[in-house]
Simulated scan of single mutants.
Amino acid sequence: MAPAPLPPDSSSSWLADIAQRSASATAQLHARALTVNDTQKVTLGVIAAYIVGIAILWNLPYIRWVLWPFKMLVIAFHEFGHALACVLTGGKVKSIELDPREGGVTHMLGGRNVITLPAGYLGSSLIGALLTFCGFNIVASKVASIVVGVCFLLTLWWGRKDWLTVGTILLAVGLLVGCWFIAHAEALRYVILFIGVMSSLYSVWDICDDLILRKVNSSDASVFAKRYGGSSQCWGVIWSIISLLFMVAGIIAGIAAFPQTSDQQKTDSENFIPTKF
């Protein structure tokens, strides 16, 4: 007499069902991450316009002064990167100074130079990438502005003896606060996006300007090369590539994380620290 057929393995069936659901969820996640909706297309268009506009203004005599307030702001990010790296590696920050012609300088005691030297360019690039990421969404831009405000307060403490540093930071804080009250902070999103793009690209343009075009020997990259080998141009190119990768990662992450339409973003913003002018 033939043996009765064995009942199907319920555990195997359950595992197969789980695997199928996981594969479906993964496929949906990939589809979502690679799909760009109309609101995101507008954001990408704005980013492209920012890149072209900043590149043109950056290289035009006299007209480049239009970017001066934002350039000073990005330099503040650069110096904040030096200062934070110094503190995190056991050093002490004496002061921060901004200069409209020479850029900025952070006076430090101690810290690990192998980290603090590249932290200016790479730190400002990372901040730029995070701001670009947040610039895809109004609520995220609100959160970003709060975090940036805290960073500004730290920079203000370190640079309190320099009037240009104090003035630049206070104007930046005033701009961010003012944008909170325009159409439930919709304007804030585009300001955060602009600052993010400029901060991401500042390191690239500044490195090219200093090391490739003008060949200035007093940059972070030249000091790094003297202490740890290689050439300043080599380190400048490496840091520029990393900065661009940060920016691309911020854009891709923004597309994947914030699929909300413009109307959905406004509704969400009305429920998150609501403000309207």
Rank of each mutant, 00 (worst) to 15 (best):
D162C: 11
V139H: 03
L88M: 15
V237M: 12
T39S: 10
I242H: 07
S13T: 05
S200D: 08
S141A: 12
G229E: 06
V191T: 11
S222F: 02
L164E: 10
T132L: 11
N217E: 14
T275K: 11
A85W: 11
A23K: 00
L88I: 15
D17F: 09
V248N: 02
S240E: 01
V139W: 05
F77D: 11
D162Q: 07
V248E: 07
N217I: 06
V191M: 12
Y202E: 03
V46R: 04
A187R: 07
A256R: 08
A83K: 05
A31D: 14
T267Y: 11
A83C: 15
S262F: 13
K71F: 02
V52E: 02
R64S: 15
I238S: 02
G111K: 02
A140G: 03
S24V: 07
V143T: 08
A19M: 08
C179E: 05
R227M: 14
K161P: 00
A253V: 06
N271T: 07
R160C: 12
T26R: 07
G111Q: 00
F133G: 01
W239A: 11
V52Q: 03
L126V: 10
A85L: 10
G128R: 07
P7I: 12
K94V: 13
F246P: 04
R189A: 14
N37M: 00
W235D: 01
Q265A: 11
A31M: 00
V223S: 10
I115M: 06
E102A: 14
I212K: 00
W239V: 06
I252F: 13
W158K: 04
A185T: 05
G81R: 08
V166L: 10
L201M: 15
D210E: 07
G111R: 04
Y202F: 15
L130A: 14
L201A: 08
A25H: 02
L170E: 08
V114Y: 15
N59R: 15
I212D: 01
D206N: 13
G45T: 02
V147D: 05
P3K: 14
I96L: 15
I207P: 00
N59Y: 13
G53Y: 13
W205S: 09
V191N: 09
R189L: 13
G254Q: 11
V216E: 13
L44H: 04
W58K: 10
F181N: 12
Y50Q: 13
R64V: 08
D268G: 05
W180N: 14
F246Q: 04
T132Y: 00
N59Q: 14
L98Y: 00
P259S: 08
K92E: 11
N137R: 07
F224H: 03
N137L: 01
I47C: 02
A249V: 14
V216R: 15
D162V: 04
A185L: 06
D263R: 12
K41G: 09
I169W: 07
C151K: 00
L98M: 01
S125H: 03
N59T: 12
S243H: 08
W158S: 04
S269N: 01
V216W: 02
I251C: 06
I251Y: 09
A83S: 15
A33Y: 06
V114N: 01
G230C: 03
D206R: 12
G174F: 07
G90P: 02
S200N: 10
V42H: 01
I273Y: 07
I56M: 11
G110D: 04
V248T: 08
H82Q: 09
V143D: 05
L171D: 05
G174M: 10
Y190G: 12
G53E: 07
R214C: 00
M1T: 09
T155S: 15
I273R: 05
